[in-house]
Simulated assay, not measured.
Amino acid sequence: MKITIAGSLGNIGKPLTNQLISAGHNVTVISSNVSRKDEIEKLGAKAAIGSVADSAFLKEVFTGADAVYTMTPPNLGGANVILNTTEAGKAFASAIKDTGVKRVVMLSSIGADLPNGTGPIAGLYNIEQLYAALDNVAITFLRAGLFYTNFYNDVPMIKGLSIMGSNYPADISLPLVHPDDIAIAAAEELQKPSAGKNIRYIVSDVRKPLEFAKILGSAIGKPELPWVEFTDEQALTGMIQAGLPTEIAGLYTEMGAGFRTGKIASDFQKNNSPVSGQTKLEDFAKEFAHAF
């Protein structure tokens, strides 16, 4: 198969590329960074350098592809994030339609069933709606849990204040996922026959924030590391003080509130979706300790 994937050689893109090449497919990797070209080609893939917001570029890259994997960069542009994410989705949808691609796997998120109140996830809701309107193309919306790798953002807080925390409580259950498990699921979906529009949740573990602190804390020699619930105002102020743009800090605060109320994870829980990923929180804790 000829398969085009977005996401460059990031935490998902690189293992996905390796899996598809190992399976004998002809793979093209989209990257906005020209310095990635040599690395992509060393893996045995073709590099396509350009912007995922450029529909003309995407049409060129998608032409002749049997399947495509799409994703939009987080915090696209740093400002007007929801609008920029949605516009990139429009470029993808236009290229898919105009080139007649028949198989698409889109990286989405838990909470993408909701139009608002979910922070940056709202952009993925918009893109799912755009893709759902496409005719004659089989699409899997790969709704991922909360990335384990987001915990790396907590390292300064742990080192500076000896706490972990956010604006949701310690005793709620949250779906988590490792990027490697997303890559495995994406590779499976890209290579298997499919029809219509389908949702697949990809989650590696379901745990509580009090367990985040205990398990990650134990891995770094801080077994008593507490989870602290912040108010929305405290969370917003803290992220801004840490250097996040005000808009992005506001979106993440809204997302945290969505976790707190349970709305973001509600569809995953309501549908009794399986926890199919292989990497549990204890496994990731070893990676976290190595990076810490």
Results as ranks from 00 to 15, higher is better:
7 G>D: 02
11 N>P: 00
12 I>Q: 13
23 A>L: 10
31 S>N: 03
35 S>N: 12
38 D>L: 10
39 E>D: 12
39 E>L: 10
40 I>T: 04
41 E>N: 10
47 A>K: 00
55 S>T: 09
56 A>R: 01
59 K>I: 05
61 V>W: 03
65 A>F: 04
66 D>G: 11
66 D>E: 14
68 V>M: 03
68 V>L: 02
69 Y>S: 02
71 M>W: 11
73 P>F: 09
75 N>Y: 13
76 L>K: 07
77 G>P: 03
78 G>F: 09
79 A>C: 03
85 T>G: 11
86 T>M: 05
90 K>R: 15
95 A>S: 08
97 K>C: 07
98 D>R: 13
99 T>I: 01
101 V>G: 04
101 V>K: 05
102 K>M: 04
106 M>S: 15
111 G>W: 02
117 G>Y: 03
120 P>S: 12
122 A>C: 07
123 G>I: 13
124 L>H: 12
125 Y>M: 06
125 Y>V: 01
134 L>Y: 05
137 V>T: 14
139 I>P: 00
139 I>E: 00
142 L>P: 05
143 R>P: 00
143 R>C: 04
145 G>M: 12
147 F>L: 13
148 Y>S: 04
150 N>V: 05
152 Y>G: 11
156 P>L: 06
156 P>A: 10
158 I>Q: 02
159 K>F: 05
159 K>E: 02
163 I>R: 09
164 M>L: 10
165 G>P: 07
165 G>D: 01
166 S>R: 14
169 P>Y: 03
171 D>K: 00
172 I>W: 03
172 I>V: 15
173 S>W: 09
174 L>C: 04
177 V>F: 01
177 V>M: 04
179 P>V: 10
180 D>L: 14
187 A>Y: 04
188 E>M: 12
188 E>W: 09
189 E>K: 15
190 L>S: 07
191 Q>A: 10
194 S>E: 06
196 G>V: 08
197 K>N: 08
199 I>K: 02
208 K>S: 06
211 E>D: 09
212 F>P: 04
213 A>S: 15
217 G>Q: 06
218 S>R: 11
218 S>T: 15
219 A>H: 03
222 K>P: 01
224 E>T: 15
224 E>S: 14
228 V>D: 05
229 E>I: 02
231 T>K: 09
236 L>F: 15
239 M>I: 09
244 L>M: 15
246 T>M: 07
251 L>S: 10
252 Y>Q: 13
253 T>H: 04
255 M>I: 11
260 R>Y: 03
261 T>Y: 01
262 G>S: 05
266 S>L: 10
269 Q>T: 13
269 Q>Y: 11
271 N>H: 14
271 N>K: 14
274 P>Q: 10
275 V>Y: 02
278 Q>E: 11
281 L>E: 12
281 L>T: 12
282 E>I: 15
285 A>D: 08
289 A>I: 12
290 H>Y: 11
